[in-house]
Computed example of a mutant assay.
Amino acid sequence: MTSKHLIEYAQASADVRAVYDDIKRVRQVEDVNNFWKCLAAHPPTLRRTWESLKEVMQPGALDPLTKELIYVAVSVTNNCPYCIASHLAAARRAGMTDAMFGELQAVVGMANETNRLATGYRVPLDAALQD
Rank of each mutant, 00 (worst) to 15 (best):
T2P: 04
T2K: 14
Y9L: 06
Q11G: 10
A14G: 02
A14F: 04
A14R: 10
D15W: 00
R17G: 01
V19A: 06
V19C: 06
D21P: 05
D22I: 05
I23R: 06
I23S: 06
V26E: 12
V26Q: 12
V26R: 09
Q28C: 11
D31A: 14
N33G: 10
N34Q: 07
W36S: 09
W36K: 10
K37N: 08
C38H: 05
A41M: 07
A41V: 13
H42F: 15
H42N: 13
H42Y: 15
P44D: 08
P44Y: 12
L46T: 10
L46E: 08
R48F: 13
R48W: 10
T49N: 15
W50I: 05
S52R: 10
L53Y: 14
L53I: 02
M57G: 03
M57P: 03
P59V: 04
P59F: 02
P59E: 12
G60M: 07
A61Q: 12
A61F: 04
L62A: 09
P64H: 04
P64D: 07
L65D: 06
K67W: 06
L69P: 01
Y71A: 15
V72H: 06
V74A: 14
S75R: 08
T77F: 01
N78M: 14
N78L: 15
N79W: 03
C80P: 02
P81M: 00
C83W: 09
I84C: 02
S86N: 11
A89M: 04
A90H: 11
A91V: 07
R92K: 15
R92G: 05
R93P: 00
A94I: 03
A94W: 05
G95V: 05
T97K: 10
M100I: 09
M100T: 11
F101V: 00
G102A: 13
G102F: 05
E103I: 07
E103L: 13
L104C: 03
L104Y: 06
L104G: 08
L104A: 10
Q105P: 00
V107M: 12
G109A: 14
M110D: 00
M110A: 11
N112F: 00
N115H: 04
R116M: 13
R116S: 12
A118K: 03
A118Q: 05
A118T: 11
T119H: 09
T119V: 03
Y121M: 15
Y121E: 07
Y121P: 00
V123F: 08
L125N: 01
L125G: 01
A127C: 00
A128D: 04
Q130W: 02
